[in-house]
Amino acid sequence: MIFERILGPLDSLFDRIGRRKTGDAPLAAFLLVPAVLVLGVFGIYPLFFSIYISLFDLRMGRGAFCGLENYTEALTTPNFWHSLVVTLYFALGTIPVAMALSFLVASALFRIVRGRSILRTVYFLPYVTSVVAAATIWRVLLNPHYGLVNAALGAVGFEETRWSQWLLEPKGVLYLATGGLIPESVGPSLALCCVILFEIWHSSGFMIVILLAGMTAIPRELEESARIDGANWFQVTRRVTVPLLSPTIFFLLIISAIKAFQAFNSFYALTGDGRGPVNATQNMTVYIYASFFLNGREGYGAAVATLLSVAIVALTLAQWRFVGRKVYYE
């Protein structure tokens, strides 16, 4: 077949030119060129461009060089720190819960036989449903005045007005839970918690698909022999499935952290403007959007974006160091 006729000679070609002292470099170059070209032009170039313009006091593409002023301004602006805190609450609130839930659902979906096609499709629906459509129904459910959630809580006798505002509530959940003992600014606001719940619901579909694909790719024999040796579900999961799945789990962890730090659509669609009541849900990306776009300060927005990227890079490196080491590759 044609494939063979092309690949065969190519293989021997790379065998001849490589291997001596360049290692796999010629072959690697051949394999990497398409991806590196696209990513270099449309990914790396804008990245450096944005770092570059963050040194300018830029509006509509015009402005003077200002050194690190944008950075010092960001670091001394309370709104910047507030948005960082919101971002952290969001990441800490979503990732562990969504990963654990998705793992449980994926394991269950992986084992069942009858109805699995339908059930797998159903669990993927939240992810394919557009965020706008999904957020619309959530807004209806959480509506303080006519929402199903408040109606249901009322029906079972829980008529606590403290909690009734949901997405419109800028006060902290800890403040609400303790009846005001903890200051309102400590802990995530109720509005932010609603966004977190939404994100868990929405992103599980994504995680389940990737976990299912990962589970399909690992050998079943090990799990089976462990089970024959009398290990229960928990032991098999802990000792066999999780280690074998660890490249996938590690991937999900890194990707979810990046996604959580960059979350925008859920915030925007749920709260109507991303900022939420009195800025309660303004995360870094919403803040960048507002500075860069609504307030037209491109240099400042790019500086905040760079700081966000630095935070993500630091986080990713830390995960690589402390979690990546535990990843089991055959």
Binding site: L32, V36, I44, Q262
Partner: peptide, 25 residues
């Protein structure tokens, strides 16, 4: 699977493309 110079740097740069918000690029 391949060994080549700058592998880690290149991979780091690839990952870096994920880290810039859309509005900026």
């Amino acid at each position: 699977r391949l060994e080549f110079p700058l592998r880690r740097v290149l991979f780091g740069l690839v990952l870096a493309t994920m880290m810039v918000p859309f509005e900026v690029i």
